[in-house]
């Protein structure tokens, strides 16, 4: 078994009102970053786990996302990276 560090992004599903993202967008606009179209604020989780290989580590974190880390009604997730650590 190898130790892996798996990073996950959990973000509000597109189309669902994201008041936090909207407030940040407006703040950036007021600071002169006029090119910003939109911002979505989510969570970044880093999970240290052990698995037989990188694929197994990713599969395990996907199961964690489905069960607990992301809300299937309102959020999407993506595995950002899987690195032996």
């Amino acid at each position: 078994m190898t130790s892996y560090r798996v990073a996950v992004h959990v973000v509000p599903r597109r189309g669902i009102l994201d008041p936090q993202g909207k407030a940040v967008t407006e703040a950036l606009h007021s600071l002169g970053f006029a090119a910003v179209a939109e911002v979505h604020v989510g969570r970044h989780l880093v999970i240290q786990t052990v698995a037989a290989d990188a694929a197994a580590a990713e599969a395990s974190v996907r199961a964690m996302c489905a069960k607990l880390l992301a809300n299937p009604v309102t959020e999407d997730f993506e595995i950002a990276s899987v690195v032996a650590a």
Binding site: P12, I16, L17, P19, Q20, N71, V73, T74
Partner: peptide, 16 residues
């Protein structure tokens, strides 16, 4: 109850 799936939908951050 929503998180447990006992009720439909989800309760998100207030818009204000």
């Amino acid at each position: 109850a929503c998180e447990a799936g006992l009720l439909p939908g989800a309760l998100l951050r207030n818009d204000r």
